[in-house]
Amino acid sequence: MFAVEVEKLTKIYGRGDTAVRAIEGATLRVKPGELVAILGPSGSGKTTLLTAVGLINEPTHGKVIIDGVTVADEGWKPGLDLRKIRREKLGFIFQAHNLIPFLTALENVMIALQINGAPQAAAEERATELLRALNLGHRLGNYPSALSGGERQRVAIARALANRPKVILADEPTAALDTENGRNVMALLKTLAVENHSAILVVTHDRRMVEGFDRIFEVHDGRIAGGV
């Protein structure tokens, strides 16, 4: 079974003469434990593809299946709790880490677990374990403002992994980092994909960062080039 299946996905913004086809007929399948890059210049439609898979941008046409559950088929499937699917099956990593500034590193990871119903003690234990695994054991009580860029992104990765998601979606995760930190983050994602058996989709415009990825898709003018 695939972790992510996208079939003939099309997203059109606007109507009539002003309609813009941001993504057209995209099809891709990602297996658990696979690290996949979606490359493309700015405005190519790669983030639109990511948001459709991330259940935050309704596709106009096509089908999206996450961990065997059809979430979109010519629009969202009625009766589905998209927020629940997002918190249980998906993890997000952002370009600007998006840590909550008034929570410590530990609390930033715990919040994802508590939103998913984990009790305080269990959430604290899991968050501590994750942050220690990412070499942030000494930064548990620090606020994001006291962390370096690389440390913040590792906290964000820990938060994305907290609920053991089937799919991790990363939007330009290295854009705010220097080359060395960027490479470290990509290496970390690769390790995690294997260890956690999660499918990881990374959207980036920086070709240098995707060395060693299992597969690379290129998006140009809303169309995916490359194999399924």
Binding site: G54, I56, R83, R86, R87, A96, I100, I111, I115
Partner: peptide
């Protein structure tokens, strides 16, 4: 942005 992030992670 914090609110958007909370919504995105399923809050």
């Amino acid at each position: 942005r914090t609110i958007a992030t909370l919504k995105l992670i399923g809050s």
